[in-house]
């Protein structure tokens, strides 16, 4: 209980502190913040619906690209659900692999996207928004995302979603049609990941094929593993990955891959979090 409160306080401090810090640290914090929203979106899909995506960069990256090509296209970003959801046809066990392969395919494809002479390996320039404003928007969205997920998770609707996740046949036997619940769950998760992608593009004012890279595909899984599948701890996990990579990359280039490797090893020990209860 004390640890849980301490984590919440630490997250709140991490959200407020950058407002008083220099521009570069704020940029880094904003990046961690968008990736925290990304992690929360992944966690909802994994915990409440039972689908562990290793290709969550699909809604994240596609929305970032749409926003960079034309900001008005951001309204189409929830449609990225229909890029990820069809992969559920492979079943829960193959879905992580299928989604990862698809995200790698998009990574390759993004190198060849050229629009009005721009794009390709260099990517696109995205509309840049004032950093203070975007930071404030990101904090608000992160808090709203957590509240939304908590609200859905504790509603009658959320109960049905969990019943479908636990045992689809048992859910059918009590009269629950699993398909709309699955589609809705994917839509919520993909929409949040899309928002994170758009914010990411707006913060850096640039989108490159790297948004589909394994760094982003695996990021929420790594952050959630560090956070043992709990929302607040996973937000902290996102900050840990971003800041640790930043601090240590001058000494160990591409240090995040070391964190990823450790998280992958730890995942087998912390797998039980998938069956534990959500604790916000």
């Amino acid at each position: 209980m004390l640890v849980s409160i301490a984590i919440r306080i630490l997250v709140l401090v991490l959200l407020i502190l950058p407002v008083f810090l220099d521009c570069y640290t704020k940029l880094l914090a904003a990046s961690a913040l968008t990736l925290a929203i990304f992690t929360v979106s992944w966690l909802y899909l994994e915990k409440d619906l039972g689908w562990a995506s290793l290709g969550h960069s699909i809604p994240f990256g596609v929305s970032a690209y749409l926003f960079a090509i034309n900001p008005l296209l951001l309204f189409f970003s929830p449609l990225t659900t229909f890029l990820l959801f069809p992969l559920s046809i492979f079943g829960k066990h193959t879905f992580p692999f299928a989604s990862f392969v698809f995200s790698v395919f998009l990574w390759y494809l993004a190198h060849h996207i050229v629009f009005e002479g721009k794009g390709g390996e260099e990517g696109f320039r995205a509309p840049s928004i004032n950093l203070d404003l975007i930071y404030l928007i990101s904090v608000t969205i992160l808090i709203l995302s957590c509240l939304l997920i908590w609200k859905i998770s504790n509603s009658y609707f959320g109960l049905k979603v969990k019943a479908v996740r636990d045992d689809e046949i048992a859910a059918k036997a009590i009269g629950i049609n699993s398909l709309p619940f699955k589609v809705f769950g994917f839509a919520i998760s993909c929409s949040l990941a899309s928002i994170a992608g758009i914010l990411h593009a707006a913060i850096f004012g640039h989108v490159s094929p790297g948004v589909f890279s394994p760094y982003f595909s695996l990021f929420p899984f790594v952050a959630a593993t560090i956070g043992q599948g709990k929302i607040w701890s996973s937000i902290l996990g996102s900050y840990t990955v971003v800041f640790l990579s930043w601090f240590l990359s001058p000494y160990v280039p591409e240090f995040h891959y070391a964190i990823y490797a450790v998280a992958l090893i730890l995942a087998s020990y912390t797998q039980s979090y998938a069956r534990s209860d959500r604790s916000v």
């Binding site: 996740r165 636990d166 009590i174 049609n177 069956r275």
Partner: peptide, 21 residues
């Protein structure tokens, strides 16, 4: 689920229950 609405309910054997609830 449509048959449940029509009034056919099955209580399956072997402890078929949403276990996290």
């Amino acid at each position: 689920h449509e048959r449940v609405k029509l009034g056919i309910i099955m209580a399956p054997e072997r402890m078929k229950l949403p276990l996290s609830l």
